[in-house]
Nucleic acid binder design. Structure first.
Lengths: 302, 302
DNA sequence: CAAACCTGTGAGAAAAAGTGACATATCCCA
DNA sequence: TGGGATATGTCACTTTTTCTCACAGGTTTG
């Protein structure tokens, strides 16, 4: 067995055990502080003495006392470790206080998140949540973004940790103020083939998907007014401009208050709403948020 | 799995791996410096990032770059480790330069050690050997004594590491100048029963031991002049004062040069010459010395 | 003088770290 | 543009280290 050269550090764990023992002048008390047995500490100190080739403690009575070399090393350890402890505490604290930046589609922010924001901040105050609504395509790898809420279909990319929250469900909705509202409510889904259907550029295939899931022929759908984003589409539906196709999650509140109607219900798509977190970054806060979101979305009003 | 509280240190081994990687800005080069695979370093850094809850490196191109937190921690590690390295080097150097104090009986010092001292210092210069001859009883536990040469019989005490060097062999010796020298040389050992036998207070039973090993009756021995120490006994024998009983090792040189005669040879006793070292202190230097002594004592002239 | 403490040590168990192989991403140059 | 060289990340498995438990001295205390 060979020992490290003079310019190398001895075992740092041994130094840690030694520092505590030297500070408390007791192997047993050091063992308590380190939550190990006294035998473990004794061994570490012995190993350190072997590496340095010098006795660090004398046995005095039934206790121990640092030798000259031991005192020298103890002081050096105290300085080194306290410096590290301080910086590590700083880093941890800064990290804990750093805001958790959650990116999500603007429509989700407005229609689902904002009404629940007070509760979230009250229940997860240490998260220090910041929200970033995006109009265009969401990039979950964008620098500074802690996590992103996305509707997407599996499989997930390998460099992302995705917490699935809820299967997307879509369905046609319209306002009671819509001209054809009273008539449509009484008819089967097929009646929509005669309506001008509001749609978005970003999810142009939404109506087709829905039609297929309803056993209707997508080709027979009449595309009406288009909007750039889902947010405007929903505003248009709320204003009674026509029938929109929308994720259930985003209209749940409006359905509950009667501002929108969805007589044919909703159907599940291939997409899932998920919380996307870059795999390489700490997951603790994201997990916490995902748990909270899951709970919230399981409630009937969601 | 739980991580340490904020006031605790993260894994010091992880910090060590991190410091090297941060300094070299490369996981692979750090692995080389630490003589491990890059996977090991990668794992350590990952562990540290988990413990601190913060990313320490960004992937930049095909390399890595420390984040703000990483730079902060790198500097702290550099300071802490360089302080420890320095103090440890100091301690090791001081220890290496400290003299190795060897205690041994005066007779052994004068009759065996001193003639070989030049060679010892030449072959083991870094040992920085100091010798302490003792007239009285040798205490191998005396403070400041690195090791002690002792003739003694097993078993050895548990708190001593004993390196056995050579079985003790004793036998009668006398000078050619001794009055009865010519006559005695031709006769069997039994003839000594008629001689006045020189002896020491410190090993009063030496002649009796020898007689028993020779199948002679100890009671028939005539004790002559006594000396306090073996050293004087040997001087007396050299001067032709009579027949002495002596360890072979101490008279080997005198026999080789013809200044003493040992016509009946030597017999092994229960004692062994051993190098006694307090078990709790570093053994490297003592092992080196023991090896050298063993080699020297195996040579014919020993 | 026994009881309470403390440290040291061994064998075996538990935990940590390392390895080797593979996957993936980037850079560079033909 | 694509293939080779270079880097990092990850996983199952192995090796090494560390810890524990139990016991063996030795010292202090009531």
């Amino acid at each position: 067995m060979t020992y490290p050269m003079a310019r190398d550090l001895p075992s740092l764990n041994a130094l840690k055990a030694f520092e505590v023992a030297a500070r408390l002048e007791s192997v047993s008390q050091a063992a308590d502080e380190l939550h190990v047995t006294h035998g473990a500490v004794s061994r570490q100190i012995r190993q350190l003495e072997d590496e340095l080739g010098v006795a660090l403690f004398d046995k005095v009575g039934r206790g121990i006392q640092a030798t000259a070399a031991g005192r020298q090393l103890r002081d050096a350890c105290r300085d080194a470790f306290s410096g590290l402890r301080e910086v590590c505490a700083d880093i941890r604290q800064a990290q804990q206080q750093a805001p958790f930046l959650l990116a999500c589609p603007g429509s989700l922010l407005a229609r689902w998140f904002i009404p629940r924001l007070d509760r979230l901040n009250a229940e997860l105050p240490e998260l220090n949540l910041h929200l970033s609504a995006s109009e265009g395509e969401l990039d979950p790898r964008r620098a500074g973004v802690s996590a992103t809420l996305l509707f997407a279909a599996p499989p997930w990319p390998a460099d992302m940790q995705v917490y699935p929250l809820r299967q997307e469900r879509i369905g046609p909705v319209f306002s009671p103020r819509y001209a054809g509202a009273a008539r449509l409510q009484e008819q089967p889904a097929k009646a929509l083939l005669n309506e001008s259907l509001l749609h978005t550029q970003s999810r142009a295939q939404a109506w087709s998907d829905w039609a297929r899931l309803q056993q209707l022929d997508p080709a027979q759908l009449k595309q009406g007014q288009g909007f750039e984003h889902l947010y405007y589409l929903l505003e248009a539906a709320l204003s009674g401009l026509g029938v929109a196709i929308a994720p259930q999650l985003l209209v749940a509140d409006d359905l509950a208050t009667g501002r929108l109607l969805a007589p044919w219900g909703f159907v599940e798509t291939q997409h899932q709403l998920g919380l996307w977190v870059p795999a390489r970054q700490p997951q603790a806060a994201a997990q916490q948020l995902a748990d909270w979101l899951t709970t919230q979305m399981q409630e009937p009003s969601a």
